[in-house]
């Protein structure tokens, strides 16, 4: 037989099995498990929570945790079961944060792509606005929006999206600038491909990694912002099963019932940490260039 070419040798090698690939990726199992549990709770909240999260039970009000048989994590001042409210809180959290972050990603990516590709005055104008939004603390921008639109879940979602898109726009623009003058883009331009097509087919695929990393890093911030706005009474109504609201309710009973505020805060911290760890891992995995020192 004729000598095998290197290409054939490569072909002969068995492709890495998915088991091996997962092993090589060094997945962060603890954060992933935590996030899966949260998503599971959110989807099956109705099935797994022991009580109705909105049902009052005045005879069993402010029960401490681990004391009575029925309520593992205790009850609040109207006898609502804390565990059930926590489980339903994960659903509320996803319902509020997921749409707002999706809108923020779409808007930010669009602005970033357009700004980076068109350059000149479009770029300067869009980046001035982006910097203005980025420059101010999110909570201040959110408060301004709520002043304008009024309180309510929808307006909180709009406020979150309106404060978060700027980070995506900035980052995506930077990425676009770094690939805009590469040969394949210039060739496409010479070939007469329309600008829209260049952005979609040649630039966008190159920013997907950055987008994914930035998304997973931002989710934690978004959860914290949402919880703060709920806590301040700008979003959902008192009595709704949301973590921020539970902490606000617990604040009124500080000395009598510490558990009402303790558990939702712990959950928020754990979830945000899980997202942050996952984001760090994803950044290292997808783009070693972005790896921080140390």
């Amino acid at each position: 037989m004729a000598a095998e070419t290197p290409a054939l040798i490569l072909d002969n090698r068995a492709p890495a099995s998915w088991r091996q690939r997962i092993k090589d990726a060094r997945l962060p199992w603890i954060p992933i498990t935590i996030l899966l549990v949260i998503v599971f709770c959110a989807i099956f909240a109705n099935l797994i929570s022991p009580y109705d999260p909105r049902e009052n039970d005045v005879r069993n009000k402010t029960q401490p945790p681990f004391a009575s048989a029925g309520h593992v994590l205790g009850t609040d001042k109207l006898g609502k079961d804390v565990l059930s409210r926590l489980i339903h809180g994960s659903r509320t959290m996803l319902q509020v944060t997921a749409p707002s972050i999706i809108v923020a990603i779409l808007a930010g990516t669009m602005v970033g792509l357009v700004s980076g590709y068109s350059g000149r005055w479009v770029d300067s104008a869009l980046m001035r606005i982006t910097d203005a939004v980025l420059g101010f603390p999110s909570i201040l921008v959110a408060l301004l929006i709520v002043t304008y639109l009024g309180t309510g879940v929808w307006n909180v979602m709009i406020a979150i999206a309106a404060t978060q898109w700027a980070r995506f726009a900035r980052m995506i623009r930077g990425e676009v600038l770094s690939v805009r003058d590469r040969d394949f883009v210039v060739l496409a331009q010479i070939y007469g491909v329309s600008p829209g097509m260049i952005v979609w087919r040649h630039l966008f695929p190159n920013v997907i990694n950055t987008l994914m990393v930035l998304t997973s890093v931002s989710i934690g911030q978004v959860i914290l912002l949402e919880a703060s706005l709920s806590f301040l009474g700008l979003g959902l109504k008192v009595g709704d099963p949301a973590w921020g609201i539970m902490i606000a309710e617990g604040r009124k009973l500080l000395t009598q019932a510490w558990w009402i505020a303790l558990f939702p805060g712990l959950i928020i911290t754990i979830v945000v940490m899980a997202f942050n760890f996952f984001g760090d891992w994803l950044r290292d995995y997808l783009d070693p260039r972005l790896r921080r020192a140390g």
Partner: peptide, 13 residues
């Protein structure tokens, strides 16, 4: 890591 993940209003309470 903890300081960046914990909600301010909760740690305050």
């Amino acid at each position: 890591i903890f300081g960046m993940a914990v909600p301010q209003f909760w740690i305050a309470i």
